[in-house]
Design a protein around this nucleic acid. Structure first.
Lengths: 143, 143
DNA sequence: TATTGTTATACTCTATAACTATA
DNA sequence: TATAGTTATAGAGTATAACAATA
């Protein structure tokens, strides 16, 4: 690499990138079998947890552009997975929520998703490693 | 989520995804200031470590399609960052290696890259967390 | 016959900017 | 004036398939 970085640090950094890449690749491939991209899955999963959400708020959470979310929401709406409706409180806002078909698709996807994450990641970690990853990477994620 | 997964496991999984995302986003933004995408950076970094590499081998390592690598190599060659030449041993093969400008660009990029990784990740981890992440995620990356 | 690499092509996605409507 | 969302548009990147050359 360069500059001042120890061998241990480099190993940890590479391990994080490689593990993240591998997991992401495997998840993306599995989702594709259900006709979903990662972005679309994250939208649906978010709506499942949050119920009804404003477009703008969702775009902020997912760190994407407004137009990008409009595009994806239109795709998912066209497939009947979610619905859009105007807000009563603020007529500029659009609220989106899962349709039954969206809920059903998630129910269909999630068991395999969990199984994949378990096989690829969780089952390979000791209890101590699991805790260290949760706390350490939690700090990285927050900042 | 769904199925059988403990709260600790879920936390660790989310932490890994979130930390990986955050790091990737920040790195991509920094690289863009140097006119590089992550894919292009990974190609250059690989060539820096490996010297001269066959197109096919590099495509395999980077887990991308042959045509995708041809496209990126053409971009980088057009900017004078790498050079292609036919192999003597196998006339079907094309070998690529860094040009001086490619080496120079990496020299320019790496210090900031290391500093970013340090600030975002390494400096936030205890020695124990660093070891656990290296060993645990190493197992995840390998498989 | 299999492999290497390129090319042609079509497609997905993303972001920027302009625009409308509402606050 | 600022914010919410859409639309138009253009650009980058990716993969598939067909192809030419070599093994």
């Amino acid at each position: 690499m360069a500059a001042s970085i120890t061998a241990d640090e480099l190993t940890a950094y590479f391990a994080l990138r490689a593990a993240g890449d591998r997991l992401q690749r495997a998840v993306a491939e599995q989702l594709r079998e259900h006709g979903l991209t990662e972005v679309q899955f994250s939208i649906l999963a978010r709506l499942r947890d949050a119920g009804e959400v404003r477009m703008s708020d969702l775009a902020r959470v997912l760190v994407t552009s407004k137009s990008g979310l409009t595009y994806q929401a239109a795709q998912l709406e066209g497939r009947g997975l979610l619905a859009r409706r105007g807000s009563d409180a603020d007529e500029r806002s659009v609220l989106i929520r899962l349709e039954p078909a969206g809920v059903a698709l998630l129910e269909q996807v999630l068991p395999g998703h969990v199984a994949l994450v378990r096989a690829l990641m969780l089952d390979r970690l000791s209890a101590g490693e699991l805790r260290a990853i949760a706390s350490g990477l939690g700090k990285v994620a927050d900042g």
